[in-house]
């Protein structure tokens, strides 16, 4: 069996840059600052599962402050107007976009699930290991994007 090329943290960084340029920071004045230790402040995690040619998960997690800012930027609203549903939907869509872009670098038969959003850190992936993580701060709030790979075909995808 040949080793499949696995996306790296640099790939996540490039995808993140595009997501910020398109939705979270179109003016280029509120960048995602990578590399600062993400303080333990995860309040929202959104994930998509990849199955088929590659098994694993892509997870976007952040504080509720960051999720609020993300929803406001995405939906062109004031942070104060953002509802819980807005935050959930936007976090889910961010996971979907990052996951979809990761998918395009994986073997052809890989499929992306619908996004799943939970409160707190996401601990639903016991049989996987984290293969890369891009963490840092956005607007002084912790933000991270990570990839988790299943141990093989035996893994039953969560969600």
């Amino acid at each position: 069996m040949t080793e499949q090329p696995t996306p790296t943290v640099d790939d996540l960084r490039e995808i993140a840059e595009q997501v910020w340029a398109a939705y979270l920071d179109p003016e280029g004045v509120r960048p995602f600052l990578v590399g600062e230790p993400g303080e333990p402040g995860t309040a929202v995690s959104a994930s998509v599962s990849l199955t088929g040619g590659w098994h694993g998960h892509v997870v976007v997690s952040c504080s509720s402050g960051a999720a609020r800012h993300a929803a406001a930027a995405f939906l062109a609203m004031e942070a104060g107007e953002v509802s819980d549903e807005d935050m959930t939907d936007v976090m889910g869509e961010l996971a979907n976009i990052v996951g979809g872009n990761v998918k395009s670098m994986l073997p052809a038969a890989t499929a992306v699930s619908l996004p799943h959003v939970v409160a707190g850190a996401d601990n639903r992936f016991p049989t996987t290991r984290r293969i890369c993580e891009l963490s840092g701060t956005w607007l002084d709030e912790p933000f991270s994007i990570s990839m988790w790979q299943g141990r093989g075909l035996a893994e039953v995808p969560a969600a």
């Binding site: 995405f74 807005d86 939907d89 936007v90 869509e93 979907n96």
Partner: peptide
């Protein structure tokens, strides 16, 4: 689109 957030962006 099945994502409400994406529909809102596109609508705008």
């Amino acid at each position: 689109d099945d994502s409400r957030a994406m529909r809102l962006i596109l609508r705008r």
